[in-house]
Amino acid sequence: MSDSSRVRPGSTLEIRDLQVAVEDKEILRGVNLTVRAGETHAIMGPNGSGKSTLAYAIAGHPKYTVTGGQVLLDGADLLDMSVDERARAGLFLAMQYPVEVPGVSVSNFLRSAVTSVRGEAPKLREFAKDLKAGMDALSIDAAFAQRNLNEGFSGGEKKRHEILQLELLKPKIAVLDETDSGLDVDALRVVSEGINRFRSSGETGVLLITHYTRILRYVKPDFVHVFAGGRIVEQGGPELADKLEAEGYESYTKATA
């Protein structure tokens, strides 16, 4: 397919002893996790366990202060890079609450993003074709491209739009922060299909953060990690998700309280 240069087999995201604070409050207390190309890791945990902090800290949100550790993408420390450099290095964060940006149209935004990530402006006709195909696949109405970024989008539209970006930008590693939250079953299926298309090449890694096991029926993880109290407290295969489904997080929250 086009742009094979961006997706190199063998990309690896290594999170080493990551410690993160928000306004002097320690949230992440030493996270270790390695995501390789072709792997899908689910991070599950109760609200307030620090899952989203992990996502935003990796992406470089200014609210989060890294107080220790490393995040390496193919050996280069993302923590030394600006937010946009991280994205151009091949990291993608699908946001839980994508912000509305008044006056910036979806098509203008997407073209700017694709141009930045690829390092050159896409050919207009090719871009229009890719965009249309991407939107069709996610059942996004064509008029959507002319709307202002996330403005007045329903919860489902926002999430589809995040996945559209994922498919257009083709990162090496995708961090999906509760992409399933607030979706009805139909939207969840559409969004999951997008994620599955993205990972079907086997050359990308996925870190899927979720509170619920529901999405894991559509996007099968290779590894499941339980997050509590700012660190990973248990790891396993897909069967761990089934256990969480049956038993909930109670035993973990008690243990770390």
């Binding site: 470089g60 946009d84 991280r86 994205a87 935004f109 993003a113 930045s116």
Partner: peptide
Amino acid sequence: FYLQARGIPFEDARRLVIRGF
């Protein structure tokens, strides 16, 4: 942050947002 997280450099992101304003 949202625009930068999509690879758009700070100065370009700033321009886009002001233009949008």
